[in-house]
Nucleic acid binder design. Structure first.
Lengths: 346, 346
DNA sequence: AAAGGAAGCTTAAACGATTAAGCTGACAAG
DNA sequence: CTTGTCAGCTTAATCGTTTAAGCTTCCTTT
């Protein structure tokens, strides 16, 4: 096996022409560059014979384009992000792009590191699920004119392209759904985060009371540290259930919170929905498997991912810069965990 | 914002020296190349001032090394692979490598495409979770002398490096565990695949009967098409449960099979483990959340991933070629789903 | 004083591709 | 016969690095 990759030069030599000519032909520029018919055919044939594969590195070095997209997410081992990654991977490939994925662990420093590594690798652009306190990075990208699209989360005070779920409306819908089904003391477990998407989820929850002329208690909203999920969720549930008047239902703001919460609810031998109605963000097969299938807010993952890639690719190709800001609706998938209360009114 | 990236040339100009000297200094070769103390310091300082970041593409083009690893898995949206991917990503980064992930969907054609794309991108080496019928690809890599390590699955008839779980022993242990706990009519749901790892899982299951002097029925083993998981699993379970003497327990050969099976078992209102004991491959939070926590075989994901990366990096760096073939034990995590039968013997 | 050696640089080719610009020869038009 | 045009090529610079080889000085040694 002669292992040497064949280069333009090899083809040129074999055809008895210059590399320039070969390049023109193989890039389909024979017309513009007035290459002879016969020699063009010959070149193509030799290229095929030698199984020529252009060297991406050389191409990229010259053109400044790597046809690579950097995808920064919180954690690829989280099903929500894994699914996003899959969609982005497929859609990018479809457009001739390769994806490099990096997990930031919701940590601004890590995401900054990732950004640097990937910029260094000359990715053409980014799709980013932002972490808390990463505003500076976004400004940096804007200043440096590096194309990017924010996914699922955005900063309302920064003017950027983004594709996101309408977190407010999703949460609001969840609240209304529970109220409609007769629940009155609805707790919410969310992260203690200033990220806009989390604030929106909380706002939606709170507004669902207000707009239905119900009172809510501050103590029903529990915000826990992302660094202390397991214990945080347990404590939150303990407090909510041991209160004078315990909550009758619970809204989980994320998949991870739900996983931990549901586990603990199992341990406590609480019956769902009899003792506790449940609605959660984040779809997953998991929710179908629980003692009682869980009602959840299904985010339009495929559409989110596809749209983000499309947007980015358009920016990369056309170099256009009309910012696109797209909000998509989540769908409430009703399951048994939030069933109508037996003697419910409204 | 002057957006131009600073290159060696810029530094050289500002320092009034040649680019060669700058390159030597910034690569720490001042000693070998007899660069003057003062000028070295000056160069370093200017590099820092201009925030110099070497151009990966140029480096790679020259050196032939991209410091990139291709990771080919079945599907990033499957938790098992997502976790693998995460570990590989982290470990690779630790070693100065970047990972490009591709999903093959257990399809040899797709994985062949992926391979080509990534070879074209000049990845230095591969970590591969092989698909069925992909032997040719492996031979191709060997012929071309492209370094790779197989992960989790390997071909016994091809001499390669690999890091894998001992699938036989895992399955065997699962069988023995069920038998010990009083189950006698143990079914298995596996893929209809000739892949070695699947065959090993089946062999382990069968041997657990034999070595305990129990008889097994052929009809207890159900192998279903990977392209028809949902219905396949349902039909299999129907057949197993509607037989004259239905099985009293079930071993799922993979995570996906288990997810589908458990869902259906829920629908059938079967009680676990009273009506049906369960053991499954593939850890996941999911299994803790079921109506009754599921006993599972925990593969050493972190170790698998880390070791694969270490092995590959060693091959890439030292260019050594003693093939390493590593088998790791899975751990049986006992939960309620395979509890001792009330009136069990042995 | 001449030769040798080393310290401290520079030069230039190479990696593989792209592309503007230039060169050559044939043919047509005047 | 001269000039112009154009088809059909080649040349050479360029992207940013690396690195073998060569070139000056200057110092040491005999």
């Amino acid at each position: 096996m002669s292992t040497k990759k064949t280069s333009l030069k090899d083809i040129a030599q074999k055809a008895g022409v210059s590399t320039a000519l070969v390049s023109y032909v193989l890039n389909g520029k024979e017309k513009e560059s007035r290459v002879g018919q016969e020699i063009a055919i010959k070149i193509r044939q030799i290229a095929a014979e030698l199984n020529y594969q252009p060297n991406h590195l050389a191409k990229s070095l010259r053109s400044g384009k790597t046809h690579t997209i950097g995808l920064i997410i919180a954690d690829i081992s989280n099903p929500f992000f894994a699914n996003i990654a899959r969609v982005v991977e497929d859609e990018a490939k479809h457009n001739g792009y390769t994806v490099i994925i990096g997990s930031s662990d919701e940590n601004a420093d890590k995401s900054r590191d990732l950004l640097d590594v990937l910029i260094n690798r000359q990715v053409d652009g980014f799709i980013i699920v932002s972490s808390e306190h990463s505003e500076l990075q976004i400004h940096y990208l804007k200043d440096k004119n590096i194309p990017f699209v924010l996914l699922d989360r955005y900063f309302p005070e920064i003017q950027t392209d983004f594709v996101s779920t309408d977190h407010y409306q999703a949460s609001y819908e969840a609240g209304v759904h529970l109220i409609k089904n007769g629940y009155r003391r609805i707790g919410m477990i969310a992260y203690d985060s200033q990220m806009f998407h989390m604030q929106e989820r909380i706002r939606g929850y709170l507004d669902s009371f207000e707009n239905n002329k119900l009172e809510s208690k501050k103590s029903w909203l529990k915000q826990i540290r992302i660094t202390n999920i397991e214990n945080g969720v347990k404590e939150a549930i303990d407090e909510l259930m041991n209160a004078n008047e315990p909550v009758d239902s619970l809204l989980f703001a994320t998949y991870s919170l739900a996983i931990n919460g549901l586990k603990y609810i199992n341990e406590l031998k609480l019956r769902v929905p009899a003792d506790l109605g449940i609605v959660s963000f984040g779809q997953a097969e998991v929710f179908e498997l629980y003692q009682c299938p869980i009602t959840y807010l299904k985010q339009p993952i495929v559409l989110l991912g596809k749209t983000a890639v499309e947007l980015l690719v358009k920016k990369l190709k056309d170099n256009v810069n009309e910012p696109a800001q797209i909000l998509m609706k989540a769908e409430l998938i009703e399951r048994a965990s939030s069933e109508s209360k037996p003697n419910s009114s409204i």
